[in-house]
Design a binder for these strands. Sequence first.
DNA 1: ATCCTCTATATGATCGAGTCATATAGTAGC
DNA 2: GCTACTATATGACTCGATCATATAGAGGAT
Lengths: 136, 136
Amino acid sequence: MCRGRAKSATGCRCARQVRGFIQPRLLLLLAKQAAHGYELMEALRALEGEEHLADPGMLYRTLRQFEAAGLVSSTWDEAGRGPARRVYRLTEAGRDYLAWWSTDIRQTRARLDRFLVEYELVQANGLAVHPKSSRR
Amino acid sequence: MCRGRAKSATGCRCARQVRGFIQPRLLLLLAKQAAHGYELMEALRALEGEEHLADPGMLYRTLRQFEAAGLVSSTWDEAGRGPARRVYRLTEAGRDYLAWWSTDIRQTRARLDRFLVEYELVQANGLAVHPKSSRR
DNA sequence: ATCCTCTATATGATCGAGTCATATAGTAGC
DNA sequence: GCTACTATATGACTCGATCATATAGAGGAT
């Protein structure tokens, strides 16, 4: 199994994150303020640290999916220097979806908590080498 | 986007769980006691509730991968009635891997916490319709 | 002019976790 | 024989995530 001990030259790139977690993070950023993709990418990098650099491909695709689903709307901004940017704004549907994600994430956190509590228990009960005969 | 409003007859079966989360849960169960696959499947069902029924395919495949990676060892048990069962026992390497997972899960939980705190903040700041001009 | 870097958006190929369907087989009850 | 429960396992497929790459405007250096 992947254990973080780099097997390939590029190291272990196993994700082990919450599925689709980029979605609520993008929506939350947009809930605070309209923004374009590149801006969002940098915001994610700042939040999660350099090691968790977001994949641009994933990010831009997710934003387009959001728009197709009516969660955000976009307009082109040609004002700045450099290439034009597509500026996204959260819609009401997007806000609802973000709320739904937040409850889902609370549930996920609860599951993680339950696991950690169980794990600490096992750690505490000695190293439990062979608890075969002792039922409790 | 998938929002839990069943689009197909079978409803939304989006996972939205932590990637590979079945791994630490299996390892933790085995840390408590040696067990065979079917037993582990029922234990997971009991822990996570009926709605989160574990897929047997995933479970058995994961166990075989564990063994291939030296995280568990297995022996056949023909004693009980019904077909023979393959009984798995955690190895030292498996225990280490479980410990590694637990720290990873703690990090994941921290990320979820950070998201939820941010979300609550946005909720608290009114509905933040257009905080464009007010920087803070 | 040409090259490089930074900003900015986007697509194609591929990987692999997770899901769904299905196969096999032993035991027990009707 | 038929069905149900226990028990393990594989093949096909979906889709989120990763990796590589393409395009293009603007600004600075040589």
